[in-house]
Amino acid sequence: MFAVLKTGGKQYKVASGDVLRVEKLAADAGEKIQFNEILMVGSTVGAPFVAGAAVQAEVIDQIKGDKVINFVKRRRKHSSKRTVGHRQQLTLVRITDILESGADKSGVKAAIGAGSAPKAAAPAAAPKAAKAAPVAAAAGADDLTAITGVGPAAAKKLNEAGITTYAQLAAVDAASFEAVKVKPEWVEQAKELAK
């Protein structure tokens, strides 16, 4: 039986006992891993992956690929040349099992690329929320930036002037208010939002 698996942006046709050189995986030598992105098992084709299928493998070693040299030379007088070398980090694995179903219950660690460690979503979302909403002066304050034309800077000035809710902004006389230049459209929108 054979399977087609996807890892590191490449596809590999494998059978039990095959040895593969794949993009670096976050696993140590001797560790057992499982590839869950299976495109095909025998004659069963998945869309996009075959459900419940997996390929289990044992990590043999972490190696480096052959050195690739990129040499650039520009002809003519006063030209330049540049040499850059690169050795790709690879993982050597031996395919041990091809599972057509029951991959979730196997208990084997999923193969994850070395550069794709899971990132914490909660800390990243907190700074965005802090930027989007201006600091409210009171606990019962409204988000004044919901009014068209009122940005974070104008909302901050309105908060400093003592206007923190839509009802307070709706009661302001736009012509006579001195602390901040209030536009009549803001007052109209505040009346609609205060309802």
Rank of each mutant, 00 (worst) to 15 (best):
F2C: 11
G8H: 01
Q11F: 04
V14T: 01
A15T: 14
V19N: 07
V22T: 10
E23H: 13
A29Y: 04
G30W: 05
I38R: 02
I38H: 04
L39K: 02
S43R: 11
F49T: 14
F49P: 12
V50M: 03
V50R: 00
V55E: 03
Q56F: 05
A57M: 01
E58S: 10
D61C: 10
K64E: 12
N70W: 14
V72R: 08
V72N: 11
R76Y: 10
K77E: 13
S80M: 12
K81P: 06
V84C: 09
L90V: 04
T91P: 00
L92C: 08
V93T: 09
E100R: 14
A103E: 04
S106D: 10
S106H: 01
K109P: 00
A110R: 14
I112A: 10
S116H: 07
A124T: 15
A125P: 04
K128E: 09
A130C: 14
A133C: 13
A137Q: 02
A139Y: 02
A139D: 11
A141S: 11
A146M: 14
G149F: 07
G149D: 02
G151E: 03
K156V: 07
L158R: 03
A161Q: 05
I163P: 01
T165M: 03
A167K: 05
A170K: 11
A171L: 03
D173N: 15
D173E: 06
D173S: 15
V180K: 00
E185Q: 14
W186F: 13
